[in-house]
């Protein structure tokens, strides 16, 4: 016990020394200094994070085998598109309802590219309603490229991806109406979703479609889980494009991310222990951003 307390004290001492060095005169924040020394903790995190991701990407490029666990929802994508082909019905893909500056939307658009390639190969009609003009432009570009790569450019229709409405529920009503009229065999929802998640998923369920959803919004996950066949949770959505591409360079990034997660877990555990022993304040201050 004494030994543990000693070790903890040493750890905290190192932390305090590091903090003192960073705030010492050499790094002192003066009104005329251009660098924000108070944000050095964030800089360290950025550097460590970037280096880790890049290192893993490099290792992946060199051919080092990297294990990726199975994500059933993504494995089901091809099967679901195949089902649509057999039934002669379209595939509906909704890349969320957020703007393109939302990273979830970009993830959704990336997955759209993969899905479009499969629908192009199977010659299955694809319908992609979007809510924002920028997403429309990006979506059209991605789908067109997918059809070209699949050698089916003649099948590409510019209105595969179409702007529906800028208003959340007008968008939802249109998509729901489409589901009930056209009865797509497969509905894929990937991106940022809000209150419309259950409205979409329940209607899709009522229309008898097989449904795969993915979002990083914790508050919408229960709805998708209740009404969809497969749901990608949180970071699985961001991992999807790398997972589907199966390119080592992309999977390298995922492994780097996992490594950082381990580091964060260690920091959390250390923080909990230090707080329990009354040294938490100094440790927490190392992570506080300004």
């Amino acid at each position: 016990m004494q030994n543990l307390t000693k070790q903890l004290k040493t750890t905290v001492l190192y932390g305090i020394i590091l903090q003192k060095i960073l705030t010492s005169s050499a790094f002192a924040q003066t009104n005329d200094s251009i660098f924000r020394v108070d944000r050095i903790n964030a800089l360290i995190l950025v550097v460590v994070f970037s280096t880790t991701i890049l290192l893993y990407t490099r290792w992946a490029r060199q051919g080092k085998p990297l294990f990726l666990r199975k994500i059933p929802g993504l494995d089901a994508v091809e099967e679901a598109v195949g089902r649509a082909t057999e039934m002669g019905r379209p595939v509906l893909f909704v890349p969320g309802i957020a703007e393109l500056d939302e990273i979830e939307t970009i993830a959704g658009i990336s997955i759209l590219g993969r899905v479009a390639k499969i629908t192009a190969q199977y010659e299955t009609p694809l319908n992609v309603p979007v809510r924002y003009p920028l997403v429309l432009a990006a979506g059209q570009e991605v789908v067109e490229q997918a059809y070209i790569e699949a050698g089916k450019k003649d099948l590409y229709d510019k209105d595969t991806v179409r702007y529906v409405a800028g208003e959340q529920f007008a968008f939802t009503a249109t998509v729901n109406g489409y589901m009930m009229r056209e009865r797509p065999a497969t509905n894929i929802y990937m991106g940022a979703f809000f209150a419309e998640s259950l409205l979409l998923a329940e209607t899709g369920n009522a229309a008898g479609s097989i449904q795969i959803a993915g979002t990083a919004r914790p508050e919408q996950l229960p709805f998708f889980i209740a009404a969809c066949d497969y749901t990608l949770m949180g970071e699985e959505l961001y991992a999807a494009s790398a997972y589907l591409s199966k390119e080592p360079v992309m999977t390298g990034g995922l492994k780097g991310q996992d490594f950082i997660k381990i580091l964060i877990t260690i920091c959390i555990l250390l923080g909990v222990i230090l707080v329990m022993f009354g040294f938490g304040k100094e440790f927490i201050s190392l992570f506080q951003s300004v």
């Binding site: 994070f49 970037s50 991701i53 890049l54 990407t57 990273i103 979830e104 970009i106 993830a107 658009i109 990336s110 590219g113 993969r114 990006a138 991605v142 990083a216 949180g234 970071e235 959505l237 961001y238 991992a239 494009s241 790398a242 591409s245 360079v249 992309m250 990034g253 995922l254 780097g256 991310q257 950082i260 997660k261 964060i264």
Partner: peptide, 18 residues
Amino acid sequence: LGAASMSLRIILGIERTY
């Protein structure tokens, strides 16, 4: 973390699927 990692991949041009 997923978002940060994806952002980094986009900034560095590793992720071009979008």
